[in-house]
Design a protein around this nucleic acid. Sequence first.
DNA 1: GTCAAATATTGACAACTCGTCAATTTCGGC
DNA 2: GCCGAAATTGACGAGTTGTCAATATTTGAC
Lengths: 237, 237
Amino acid sequence: MATASRKQREIRQRELLILDTARRMLLEKGYIGLSMDRIAAEIEYSKGTIYQHFTCKEDLVAALAVQTMTVRRGMFEAAASISGRTRERMTAVGVADQLFAEIEPDHARVEQLLKEVSIWDKASAERRNAALSYETSCMSVVAGVVRDGVAAGDLAMSDGEIEQLVFGLWSLAWGARSIMAASLAIEKFGISEPEAALTANYQVLLDGYQWRPLSTEWDYVATAERIRDELIRQRST
Amino acid sequence: MATASRKQREIRQRELLILDTARRMLLEKGYIGLSMDRIAAEIEYSKGTIYQHFTCKEDLVAALAVQTMTVRRGMFEAAASISGRTRERMTAVGVADQLFAEIEPDHARVEQLLKEVSIWDKASAERRNAALSYETSCMSVVAGVVRDGVAAGDLAMSDGEIEQLVFGLWSLAWGARSIMAASLAIEKFGISEPEAALTANYQVLLDGYQWRPLSTEWDYVATAERIRDELIRQRST
DNA sequence: GTCAAATATTGACAACTCGTCAATTTCGGC
DNA sequence: GCCGAAATTGACGAGTTGTCAATATTTGAC
């Protein structure tokens, strides 16, 4: 009994070891360069043992994606529950997104790498459900802040538009990061600070939706800095 | 001489045959399911011959991406040169983007599939340069319309902001399509018409940038329809 | 029309990949 | 110390990409 749980602990530990090794390899060599044989060699277990944890290569990397999603969700929730006006809280989620990319670069890059390859078809249903749940809960956090904005009278919006706005912010963030990672032309084209451009566009979109106070009436750069410090402080405790 | 060019024509023809076959296979079976052996069998040439056209599998799919980019660029240019107010022309590019996804679904899907896998590292330098050039010229088309907007006094903007706006539109479009293709949660979350949401967000962003006439002062839905018809008409001639 | 040299084409091959499963080792309870 | 259950292994089958000696074709000179 005590031994059984010790064994289970060992297995959990090993699973983490596999994931860590896989993540490192994925970042170094890309999805195609990620080899089950090499992982096995590195962790000094046989390949068969790895396949006791994961049904296939896709399932393994899907597990990586799920790990990453939990980290992101945690940061989003912390950001959304910060104090201030509703648009400040929306800004906070943007800051969290940026912080996530900055503080957890491995996680952020894995997330991108994996959106690319179609993993979910072959991954186990269990894993897929986990991912689905984390993704929807990330979106719900954002949608919650938007609803608070409407409730507070800072934002006028029908129900369908709320999802539209969330989709817009999400597209903007995801697209920008995806372009930063993959595009050949971005530097040549003269976007030297894409991260700053992203946050600026973020605010422009919120202005377009007339989320009050508008950026002409409020210093959201200061807000972003305040929140950034606060989120970092929270993390370190 | 005449014979040399005949031979060259044959080679060109075969290259197109390889690309067509590869595209079909890529769409059917995904990047991993795309096999050089199977392509060779299907076109009834040996694998060695394929490797005379392309340095490696990545180079082949990079060539597919380049083909796709030329189609996209063509549509962008046609859209940008349409008549009307500057913001209408900007809207036209958005319509072209949508039309591209609609009329050339194979090209559009290939474009997405390939952003995912990191192809460019291994592709030949020649191919990479071609891609870079097409991508920058797509962006230049958009930037040109923005500059025209500034010149016409419809839009107030510093130089750096122009690139920022282009980056914003591009992020929005790219991110939305990427999410549509890959996301598990999108339907569950209640975004039933993502394409419509994208075009709406498009206009919201332009409103945020105060590109006149604002969407409150002008019917851009009508504009989009007019341009859509016109672009389709142009294509069919 | 003939023939040698240049060019194009081939497919067996080496070296790798994923996922399986019979055989082996390790472990837990008695 | 011993036995049955559970975990671990790595050789293996079937697949992949990319290479290259051997073969087939085309070319240009005579």
